[in-house]
Design a binder for these strands. Structure first.
Length: 492
RNA sequence: GCCAAGGUGGCAGAGUCCGGCCUAACGCAGCGGCCUGCAGAGCCGCCCAUCGUCGGUUCAAAUCCGACCCUUGGCUCCA
């Protein structure tokens, strides 16, 4: 079964053919000027699942995800806290947090997380290469890409050059040859206008200064777009397989990446462009500048990683998705069902020995059908929603088996659990087994104790007393379920 | 204005590339039954859609073609 992906470059779904032994994957990462929100995490999650699926399918994946740590907004925050003395201090602070959240959301680590500030020499090399080739020119210490020298300019976003408005801030426009030209190198550090605007917003009249680097043209800073080209070429290759990024970056960012990269090397920059749809709240893009965001930190606190992932996996990567309390509640229901069934399967499996003779062909069939359907869905442009539906159908099969059989099918349950672990765990990054530590163990023992008392009350017919105990546990986030084999419980 | 994505049941959201198995998937909410001291969970079943509008192609269209309306995103920092 072959993987097909929707390529924004062509607008078509195409069969995926990697160029080499390794799949080269670049994810257009975050500008670390603030705490990330759920919109960012949506991109990361889909990128994570794409990387996981490629690996699960047997590919070796080289996964590069950058941090933009040189940016006007970051510079504008210098001094906001005593320990934020430089742009790098601010960036480091947020990078550390992002890494922490990524761990919290159970992302598989990328192969490398390059930062702009560590690739200035590569950026300068690339800019020099573009000047030599006649694709870029210097003006007052700044360097601009001349869009008229790149015939394919606009091929990703279908823009016509004469329809385009000027890029960048107004001050630099006068020195450009064409309005659509964009900066590769900016003389003199942060543009005064830009920094004023952010500074005003953030901390009154302070005048923070962005870091500058020496270059053949001026003491200055790299333009925004050039970094991705430089880092992609440095850590992957001139031609990569897959470039993943948010839909809001198609133009100008990705368009410019293509122009500068392909003008410099003469090779195709990326074979497949995957764009993730944006997360919306009440009909609007979730965005730090719109003040309608829910931070990853707050979401982890409130919902936990599994519910967040389940939420994201309810929609394909390319579609937009709406965040709301209702949609999160639904994700919670869906996750709870998966988790409950998983644990029911484990318990049932533990209760029979491996040599048991029971065989449930329905269950075994469901296992293989699940894997088939899941695989087909993922190979159809990473259709996570359909893949999740396949997993869901397995929960029904497992529950039915447990309900209908007095003795369980050990091998069948074993296979089901392995399927949950493989598809739900390895591919979707869901964690069925919550980490237990000493506190949780002790708590569990105490809950068992309470339940023993409650059972005694029930047997004595003191249902009021029994219900009080159940309510008391429930108030503390412990959900009790009675069954024929006695009560079970779980921490919510 | 230009470019892109999308408009499917109360909500959410697949299917649209390669027209027929779509009398439209997995769900959430709701309803009924089984189970239960009760509740929950689970199981079984049910309710709700002619797929933005109009027109065309076809034996056959949610799926192809055309026009129009609406939503979101981009054209300034942005996942």
């Amino acid at each position: 079964m072959v993987l097909s992906v929707t390529n924004s470059l062509t607008g078509d779904r195409e069969e995926f053919e990697p160029t080499g032994d390794e799949v080269l994957l670049y994810v257009c990462g975050l500008t670390v000027s603030d705490d990330p929100h759920l919109g960012h995490a949506r991109l990361w999650t889909h990128a994570d699942v794409i990387a996981r699926w490629l690996a699960f399918s047997g590919y070796d994946v080289r996964h590069v995800e950058n941090f933009t740590d040189v940016n006007e907004k970051i510079a504008a925050r210098v001094g906001e806290r005593p320990e934020w003395e430089t742009e790098a201090d601010v960036a480091r602070h947020y990078i550390e947090r992002v890494i922490e959240y990524m761990r919290g959301l159970n992302f598989q680590r990328a192969t490398v997380y390059p930062r702009v500030s560590e690739h200035i020499p590569e950026i300068i090399d690339l800019v020099e290469m573009l000047i030599e080739a006649g694709h870029a020119y210097e003006a007052n210490g700044s360097v601009y890409f001349d869009v008229t020298t790149f015939e394919d300019y606009g091929k990703l976003s279908n823009q016509q050059l004469d329809e385009l408005e000027a890029q960048g801030d107004p001050d630099e426009r006068s020195e450009k040859r064409n309005p659509a030209d964009f900066a590769l190198w900016k003389a003199g550090g942060v543009a005064p206008d830009a920094i004023d605007e952010h500074a005003k917003h953030n901390h009154g009249d302070d005048r923070p200064t962005g870091q500058t680097w020496d270059s053949p043209w001026s003491e200055g800073r790299p333009g925004w777009h050039i970094e991705c080209s430089a880092m992609s070429m440095t850590h992957l290759d001139d031609t990569i397989d897959i470039h993943v990024g948010g839909h809001d970056l198609v133009f100008p960012h990705h368009e410019n990446e293509i122009a500068q990269s392909e003008a410099a090397t003469g090779d195709t920059f990326a074979n497949y462009w995957l764009h993730t749809g944006l997360l919306e709240t009440k009909g609007e893009k979730m965005s730090s500048s719109l003040d309608n965001f829910f931070t990853v930190e707050a979401a982890l606190e409130e919902y936990g990683p599994n519910v967040i992932r389940t939420f994201y996996l309810a929609t394909e990567y390319g579609s937009k998705q709406t965040f709301s309390e209702e949609s999160m509640a639904e994700a919670e229901e869906r996750w709870d069902r998966l988790e409950r069934t998983y644990h029911a399967a484990v318990e049932a499996c533990d209760s029979v020995d491996a040599t048991a003779k029971t065989e449930d062909s329905d269950l075994r069939e469901a296992v293989s059908e699940t894997t088939e359907a899941f695989t087909a869905a993922m190979n159809a442009d990473f259709n996570v929603r359909e893949a999740m539906a396949a997993l869901r159908s397995l929960t029904t099969a497992v529950n039915r088996h447990i309900e209908d059989h007095a003795t369980y099918d050990y091998q069948g349950l074993k296979a089901a659990i392995e399927t949950f672990d493989g598809l739900g765990g390895e591919v979707f990054g869901l964690q069925f087994d919550e980490a237990t530590d000493g506190d949780v163990d002790l708590a569990s023992e105490l809950v068992e104790l309470v339940l023993d008392v409650r059972e005694a009350e029930r047997e004595a017919g003191n249902y009021d007393r029994a219900d009080d105990l159940r309510d008391a546990l429930s108030d503390r986030g412990i959900e009790v379920q009675d069954s024929d084999d006695g009560p079970t419980f779980r921490f919510e």
